[in-house]
Design a protein around this nucleic acid. Structure first.
Length: 444
DNA sequence: TCTGGGGTCCTAGGACCC
DNA sequence: TCTGGGGTCCTAGGACCC
């Protein structure tokens, strides 16, 4: 038996923990650049705000309906997430932290009252972090996800589900008829693994509800869609195809990208931005003790602005040898921009991807007979690198991000910081739990 | 005017091998 | 007239997730 525990409207709930004035109000959290809504309170959902909807489309609700928008504060959400996961992890021998607000728990062999355990877990998370959660139990991960969906929405769909499934829902206690009722009352798009595209295709074929999907022919789904959807079907029927993964592998790629606060037309702006992204990506790389064998850099105009001439560059550079040294990535991506930049375009976004990752401890030895003299380096030089980068990481950890950074990231040739590409975040809340100077103050 | 960021997996097709 | 068979690896693109 699996459980899926999921925070309700995670980002909004994190804001509410420290800003009680947001309770009961329609609230949305905005993506970087305050561009789109990436989290909504139930009240905001009721106003009709859609997931990922551009802010400018719903902005009028500020005046007309009291909608409140805040900028995303990922430092706060990440810290609240670790606290929440620690509490949840106490309730089962194995836990898979699946996303910032969800974890799977393995209750195999546990024969106690799971609903009681679920209620106790919810109460503990609420007490210790302030975050409201929902819990779903099912014999497969896909069913646990579906049970969680029911736990979350049961209150808002009175009548269509059997009663008593809100907040904590255990599919194991339902009769076949009740499970059919639940599945018949749930749209196929709510299933984990069925997204917009496949959902539309299924609906078109007359498969509207989860029950319709469960009654499809497995080999037909495999033929018409994919092996992925076939697995989803088996899981919905109770055959477990996905194990709990409590020791996730190191990342296979690392991406740092941003949309610009306003469009960038100068080469220097792009060079600055991608240099900074490369440094940031390298920090993440070293944090997981890996090295990268290649780096990709891309920059492009906005796909939304139909008046702009479109232009998009994406170049992957293989590195002479796998590395985690920021300087290699920064110089590689800056070279690409200097070579590929075209003036006359309004660039809207850029990013850096580190590829071909491998553990730093398992780097392939080399017999370097053919390297050109200018890439051969004196012996011993490589040894200095990990120490230098480790020192940079330690200083930034202690004195704050960017206490130390490379010369050409975010500093223009005239020595002034330009950062014309910086993102806009006009409504960000304090980082209450991770910065001494932003801690909430209790007034007597 | 204004449209997120960071990931994973699968598949099809081409290059290449013997 | 007649034009192999079987395999691997890589990449790009498309789907999904939160």
């Amino acid at each position: 038996m699996f459980a899926l525990v999921d925070a309700n409207n995670m980002y909004v709930s994190c804001e509410r923990v420290f800003q009680p004035r947001l309770n009961g109000k329609p609230v949305v959290v905005l993506s970087s650049n305050d561009g789109a809504c990436i989290a909504r309170s139930n009240e905001a959902k009721e106003l009709g705000v859609k997931m990922a909807q551009p802010w400018f489309q719903v902005r009028h609700l500020e005046r007309s309906a009291g909608l409140i928008a805040v900028s995303a504060n990922f430092e706060l959400y990440g810290d609240m997430s670790s606290r929440m996961m620690a509490v949840e992890g106490r309730y089962a021998p194995r836990q898979e932290v699946y996303s910032i607000d969800e974890s799977f728990l393995d209750f195999t062999g546990v024969h106690s009252d799971l609903v009681a355990i679920g209620r106790d877990l919810r109460a503990a998370v609420l007490r210790e972090t302030g975050l409201p959660t929902s819990v779903g139990f099912g014999p497969t991960k896909t069913l646990a996800k579906l049970a969680n969906h029911v736990a979350k929405t049961a209150d808002r769909k009175p009548g269509s589900y059997p009663s008593g499934l809100a907040q904590v829902c255990n599919f194991g206690l339902l009769t076949q008829a009740e499970l059919d009722q639940v599945m018949a009352a749930t749209e196929v798009g709510a299933v984990w693994g069925v997204g917009r595209r496949i959902g539309a295709k299924l609906t078109e074929a007359g498969v509207r509800t989860v029950l319709d999907l469960v009654r499809c022919d497995a080999s037909m789904l495999r033929r018409q869609f994919s092996v992925v959807l076939q697995k989803t079907l088996l899981e919905l029927r109770g055959t477990s195809c996905m194990d709990l993964d409590d020791a996730p592998a190191a990342r296979q790629q690392i991406l740092v990208s941003r949309s610009f606060g306003k469009s960038v037309t100068e080469m220097a702006g792009i060079v600055e931005a991608v240099s900074e992204f490369a440094s940031r990506a390298a920090e993440k790389l070293r944090a997981q003790d890996s090295v990268a064998g290649a780096v990709n850099v891309f920059f492009l105009t906005s796909p939304f602005r139909s008046n702009d001439r479109p232009h998009s560059v994406s170049v992957t550079v293989p590195l002479v040898r796998p590395t985690s040294d920021s300087r290699h990535f920064v110089s590689a991506v800056a070279d690409v921009v200097r070579r590929e930049f075209r003036s006359g375009f309004n660039y809207a976004k850029a990013g850096v991807m580190l590829l071909d990752l491998q553990p730093a401890t398992q780097v392939q030895g080399e017999l370097d007979l053919f390297a050109a003299p200018d890439v051969q380096e004196p012996p011993g030089k490589d040894k200095a690198r990990p120490a230098l980068m480790a020192a940079v990481d330690a200083l930034n950890l202690r004195f704050g991000r960017d206490a130390v950074h490379l010369g050409n990231s975010s500093i223009a040739s005239n020595g002034h910081e330009v950062r014309s590409w910086s993102t806009k975040q006009e409504r960000r809340s304090p980082r209450f739990t991770t910065r001494w100077d932003e801690m909430p103050v209790v007034k007597a």
